[in-house]
Design a protein around this nucleic acid. Structure first.
Lengths: 218, 218
DNA sequence: CCAGCCCATGAACCATGGTTCATTCTTTGT
DNA sequence: ACAAAGAATGAACCATGGTTCATGGGCTGG
């Protein structure tokens, strides 16, 4: 028995791993997954290219990790709202505003997560992310229908429509010119949320401009 | 003077060009742009790889061409409906049903056009395609608002929401399991259209199951 | 302080898939 | 039939970017 990992070492290893993840995440937030090339991530993390492969078996796995970390963070936030005991309609409004609002604030990262061209394997991860979103929406819709706040609908389809409407309207190629978003993000968000609420028969929301969580995704 | 292109030759050249486009288009419709590799297109068109470059300066240009051809065809169809003198609400219903219905029938191709990961240059072309869609929607919405059929809204945003909701719900990663779409496409389309109509305050559409144009996109 | 192992290094390697180009085949006009 | 010019060929080429691996340096336990 000649070697056993000491605490100091495993701490350093953990730090390196974090460093890699942070570097990659920062790159994704700046230029999308396309910008997160292995050699670039290594440079940014201050290590050699090959070292990455001591921590992640492939670039794909690294990217998946990023995907999971970021999306888990976002999902938790939404899940928390969804789980409150407010009426369904109010929860729906808040979830939509939070989702849309945070996407606006961290637009580049949101684009990477929701829409950037990525290869098939990463797309799986994205699909999972989106599906989870949609499930949160769907569950609230179900509650609302059960309580009579909302009319009957196919909640799965409605949830997918909501997810699509928000993503596309905010960050897709159809997004309003960025200056419009920069100048008046709350207004754009409110419009989109209003569309979605009306889509599920929840009428107009009380406008609560300025209530978006300010910290950017990242 | 020793050579001048004769009619027979230029006809053959034109035929080859078409052959390339058709082969590429078929490949895209089967497996998306990813499947349309230059060598594969050539094989399918029954010519040598290099020959492609006598007709298109690059793969990108070839793909752009495909994009334009297919989308022009779809756009024309929608534009025709949009230009009719029916009331705005009716035109909206028909445009949405047509768009969604045709996307279902040519799902693979629709996916390639609307959602498949493609590189940045092709994405431009896609952006144009989407913007044109959105403009058609937006114009109808404006008409509807002007005539009092629809409540005031930001038509640009609403149009983007519509485009996003339809694409995502039908063919994106949130699309219902294919068997559901295969079994009962009209029902799914109707749900989505209903969501969009409600989103712009147009209430429920008269359901017209089975009215979708049957010919697949292609 | 030495043997043995782990960890880091980064230049070389490799796979993919678009692009080129020397060569060959066809067409044209005399 | 022949020369000039265009068209077609497809194997070689190249760029990109992920992955590997022989090497050297640092830890660990005795």
């Amino acid at each position: 028995m000649a070697y056993r990992q000491t605490d100091k070492v495993s701490a350093r290893l953990a730090a390196t791993r974090r460093g890699i993840l942070d570097a990659a995440r920062a790159l994704v937030a700046e230029g999308g997954f396309a910008a997160a090339q292995v050699s670039e991530v290594a440079r940014r993390a201050g290590i050699a290219t090959g070292t990455i492969y001591r921590y992640f078996s492939s670039k794909e796995e690294l990217c998946r990790q990023i995907f999971r970390e970021v999306s888990a963070q976002e999902m938790d936030r939404l899940a928390l709202i969804a789980a409150s005991d407010a009426p369904a309609r109010a929860r729906l409004v808040e979830v939509l505003q939070t989702f849309a609002g945070r996407a606006v604030l961290g637009r580049r990262l949101a684009y990477a997560l929701l829409a950037e061209p990525v290869d098939a394997n990463l797309a799986e991860e994205r699909a999972f992310f989106r599906r989870t979103h949609a499930e949160i929406f769907a569950r609230i819709l179900e509650d609302g229908i059960a309580s009579g706040e909302l009319p009957e609908t196919n909640v799965k389809i409605a949830a997918a429509c909501i997810a699509g409407a928000i993503s596309t309207a905010l960050i897709g190629p159809l997004a309003p010119q960025s200056h419009e978003l920069d100048e008046n993000p709350d207004r754009v968000v409110d419009e989109i949320v209003a569309f979605c609420l009306a889509g599920v028969g929840a009428g107009l929301p009380e406008r609560k401009a300025g209530k978006i969580e300010r910290r950017a995704k990242a």
